Amino acid sequence: MELDRTKLLAARYRAASDRPYLATAMYALSIVVSENVPTMGVDKNWRCYVSPAFVARTPVEQLAGVWMHEVAHLLRDHHGRASRVPTRDHHRVNVAQDCEINDDLITDGVPLPAFRVVPGDFGRSAGRLFEEYLPHIPPTKGDHDCGSGAHGHAAPWETQEGPAVSPVEADAIRRQTAEAMRAHHKAGGTLPRGWQRWAGQLLEPVVDWRVVLAGAVREAVVWASGAMDYTYRRPSRRAKAMPGVVLPSLRRPLPRVAIVIDTSGSMGEAELATALSEVTGVLREVGIRGDRVTVLACDADVHTVARVTRTADIELAGGGGTDMRVGIQAALTAPDRPQVVIVLTDGHTPWPEETPSCRVIAGLVGDTPPEPPAWIEAVRIRPSLPDSSAG
Rank of each mutant, 00 (worst) to 15 (best):
L3V: 14
R5N: 12
T6F: 07
T6R: 15
K7C: 05
R12Y: 01
I31A: 06
V32A: 06
E35D: 15
M40F: 07
G41T: 02
G41W: 03
K44L: 03
N45Q: 12
W46S: 06
C48A: 11
A64L: 04
M68S: 01
V71R: 01
D77G: 00
D77S: 07
R84V: 09
H90F: 15
E100G: 08
G109W: 02
F115Q: 04
R116V: 12
G120R: 12
G123C: 11
E131P: 00
E132A: 11
P139W: 07
T140K: 11
K141D: 14
G152A: 04
W157F: 15
T159K: 02
Q160A: 14
P167D: 02
R175L: 03
M181I: 01
P192L: 01
L202K: 06
P205Y: 05
P205A: 05
R210W: 08
V211D: 14
A214V: 08
E219Y: 05
V222S: 09
M228E: 15
S236T: 10
M242A: 11
P248Q: 10
P255M: 03
E271W: 06
T274R: 15
T280W: 05
G281E: 09
V293T: 11
V295C: 11
L296C: 07
D299W: 00
A300T: 12
A306C: 05
R307K: 12
A312T: 15
T322A: 03
A330K: 11
A331T: 04
L332G: 03
G363L: 06
V365M: 13
T368A: 06
P373W: 11
A374K: 15
W375P: 10
I376V: 15
P386T: 13
